[in-house]
Simulated assay, not measured.
Amino acid sequence: MAPSKTVDPAELRASLIAVSAWLDDPSVPKPPRAELAAAVRLSARTLEQTAPGSSVEVRVPPFVAVQCIVGPRHTRGTPPNVVECDPRTWLLLVTGRTEFADAVRGAGVTASGGRAGEVAHWLPLVRV
């Protein structure tokens, strides 16, 4: 199922710029929750739009979970292909500051299922 509202690329870029100092330096104070939530939600929904489908679920608790990538549809229970990470790691991936494989090796990303790694093909979404 496609998201109900298309993400405006300018809005996505602005939300990522708002948190970029924290992404570059974790000692910088964490952005306000609303700014962080906007960056995470807009970027995840952009992934959902650019890689439509429902074979992989991407979770960034507590803000969002989206399904993406064409393939077998999941409808009930725990999905067989899941990518989960914290908001900072997600935004590092989205902006190209971290590679997917490196984040998995470093335990910043949990990727389960044979198709979960396909998310890497769609990242980064925006370099800021």
Results as ranks from 00 to 15, higher is better:
21 A>V: 08
22 W>P: 05
22 W>K: 03
24 D>W: 09
25 D>H: 05
25 D>P: 03
25 D>M: 01
26 P>V: 09
27 S>P: 01
28 V>Q: 06
28 V>N: 07
29 P>V: 02
29 P>R: 07
29 P>N: 07
30 K>T: 12
30 K>W: 09
30 K>L: 12
30 K>C: 12
30 K>I: 11
32 P>R: 13
32 P>D: 14
36 L>V: 04
37 A>G: 10
37 A>M: 09
38 A>P: 02
38 A>E: 10
38 A>N: 08
39 A>R: 01
39 A>I: 09
39 A>N: 05
40 V>M: 06
40 V>Y: 06
40 V>D: 05
41 R>T: 14
42 L>F: 00
43 S>R: 00
43 S>C: 00
43 S>I: 00
44 A>M: 03
44 A>V: 05
45 R>C: 09
45 R>H: 13
46 T>H: 07
46 T>F: 11
47 L>C: 00
47 L>F: 00
49 Q>T: 11
49 Q>N: 10
49 Q>H: 11
52 P>H: 00
52 P>C: 00
53 G>E: 03
53 G>F: 08
54 S>K: 13
55 S>W: 04
55 S>K: 02
55 S>C: 01
56 V>A: 08
57 E>A: 10
58 V>F: 02
58 V>G: 01
58 V>E: 04
59 R>I: 06
60 V>S: 04
60 V>H: 04
60 V>D: 02
61 P>V: 04
62 P>K: 04
63 F>Y: 15
63 F>K: 09
64 V>R: 10
65 A>M: 05
67 Q>C: 14
67 Q>F: 15
68 C>I: 04
68 C>S: 10
69 I>A: 03
70 V>P: 11
70 V>M: 14
71 G>T: 05
72 P>A: 15
73 R>D: 14
73 R>V: 15
73 R>H: 14
73 R>M: 14
74 H>I: 00
75 T>L: 13
75 T>E: 13
75 T>D: 12
75 T>G: 08
75 T>S: 14
76 R>N: 12
77 G>K: 00
77 G>I: 01
78 T>W: 12
78 T>E: 11
78 T>K: 09
78 T>R: 12
79 P>A: 03
80 P>A: 07
80 P>V: 06
83 V>C: 09
83 V>P: 07
83 V>N: 10
84 E>V: 13
84 E>K: 13
84 E>H: 08
85 C>M: 13
86 D>N: 12
88 R>E: 08
88 R>K: 11
89 T>M: 11
90 W>Y: 05
91 L>V: 00
91 L>Y: 01
92 L>I: 05
93 L>P: 05
94 V>I: 02
94 V>D: 01
94 V>K: 02
95 T>A: 04
95 T>N: 03
95 T>Q: 06
96 G>K: 01
96 G>M: 01
97 R>E: 02
99 E>R: 15
100 F>D: 06
100 F>Q: 03
101 A>D: 15
102 D>A: 15
102 D>Y: 12
102 D>V: 14
104 V>D: 09
105 R>H: 13
106 G>M: 10
107 A>T: 15
107 A>C: 11
107 A>F: 13
108 G>R: 11
109 V>W: 06
109 V>H: 07
110 T>G: 08
110 T>C: 02
111 A>S: 02
111 A>V: 02
112 S>Q: 14
116 A>Y: 05
116 A>W: 06
117 G>Q: 02
119 V>E: 01
120 A>L: 06
121 H>M: 13
122 W>C: 06
123 L>Q: 00
